[in-house]
Design a protein around this nucleic acid. Sequence first.
DNA 1: TCATCCCATTTATCCTACAAATTAAATTAT
DNA 2: ATAATTTAATTTGTAGGATAAATGGGATGA
Lengths: 271, 271
Amino acid sequence: MRKQLLTTTLVDQVHEQIMDYIKENKLVPGNSLPNEVQFAEMLGTSRNVVREALSRLKMIGLIESRTRRGMILKEFSIFDSLKNGFDPIFLGENSLLDLLGFRVSLELGISDDIFQNMTEEDINELEEIVRFGVMLKNNEYALGSEYYFHAKLYEITGNQTIAQFQKLIRPIMVYIKDNFKAYFEPINLELKNKGLIVTHADILKCIKERNLAEFKNKLENHFLVYKIFIREKRGTSKRIRTEQYLSLKSPALMKDKFFHPNDFSSDNSLD
Amino acid sequence: MRKQLLTTTLVDQVHEQIMDYIKENKLVPGNSLPNEVQFAEMLGTSRNVVREALSRLKMIGLIESRTRRGMILKEFSIFDSLKNGFDPIFLGENSLLDLLGFRVSLELGISDDIFQNMTEEDINELEEIVRFGVMLKNNEYALGSEYYFHAKLYEITGNQTIAQFQKLIRPIMVYIKDNFKAYFEPINLELKNKGLIVTHADILKCIKERNLAEFKNKLENHFLVYKIFIREKRGTSKRIRTEQYLSLKSPALMKDKFFHPNDFSSDNSLD
DNA sequence: TCATCCCATTTATCCTACAAATTAAATTAT
DNA sequence: ATAATTTAATTTGTAGGATAAATGGGATGA
């Protein structure tokens, strides 16, 4: 058990094996897990290695442990698992721009859900938020107002995962606004001169009028500053093709893949 | 150093402290980190605790280590960090539905970017993909074809993070299709009878005609089966309000928050 | 019956030792 | 003197044991 020829370390393997154990025994949130020494014996490793693997699972919130009570499986939430140990400072500029674009696209895509789900009460709360929103200059809302207005929109969709995502990338939004202020100001100025500034009040108006098309339009313009910023910042940098796509330039190969769609789960060449 | 009265464990703290070290010393990807014993001395803990914290950072891909070479900082990518140790089986039904809705919304939101960025070559590749796509029954494409068609759309946006996200949730899509087949079939049948089935070929047609509005329309219908599925599956279950929103029912409090937008970073009551 | 105290169990932390890998230095061979 | 080989040193990887802290449960006593 002291070989390490592979790229994967023992901890990596134990990490996998513990997850396999959970799967095989069909544990559900609330169930308790074997204790550390049991895992160590079961997997033929030292308790130390088991603890490192468990530490990872604790970080992502898959398990929880307390002295004497042992460990229990927790309900896993994909974006909550990232909230620990995450800071915009660790992201490269491309990732930052990507995430900004990601967020904008996502919000543009939930328009239908918003109109489908919203109630009178929702609209009242949005009005309340807009009323107290502080307009600083151009359309640079105070971060608080900005956050709560959009948080409310996310909430209306009823999709908690989207709400979690917003919470997760909030520091990123703050970071971007702090660090690229110089880029936003001239863009906003130009938009203002062209009369393209869309405020939260404008968006709310469309909601109250139940005008979905106009809502989408306004929302797009509301995010225009970000879209322009991203395009300017990226400049002429080439689009990068995803490897998985490059790998199937050959029609013959592609055809082969498509006719065996069930082989995908065990197909590493595409990951 | 043997107290543990707090909810946070020593490993949690060291985890934070190591990240702080990276921040304070302005390390960039490629830079090397102090070795394990140095961290242990620096932070006044045992090497074991340091290793557990480092193990977490290794899992999310923030650092990489090799024997004798020490550890180096890596370029962090938010969704890549999740790809290890993640399985749909650990997600509750609500999370699964949320993620399905998340994905659909995201894709609906990137339409503009697609039309902005696409080239003749992209269209040719899409044609190639559609040509080899295997239509099984109704609009249930072979998973391979489905995947590559949409992967190509993501690629056109030039947003790598979106592409990574698709890779990440691919097992979830497979899982959902496997486990809820019985739900999809009647929905698809009904859509078929109403002539609402939209194939990849239909979508491609809009792209070739540069008809953005129709593209959005078709894409929406292409995903209609998922939207209906989600609504049916959720049934009458109440929408859950995000805590952060509930906490500011009081206009006075809200006003207070908004006027101090810079205090947010240290404001736990809203996280 | 109930409150209190003690014990067993399990995680949390620390310590020491050795193995494996790999870089760097030293030594030997040509 | 240069090249090849061997040796040494460093750092992560793994093992095993020991103690501390927390806590659930049982024993004890009023």
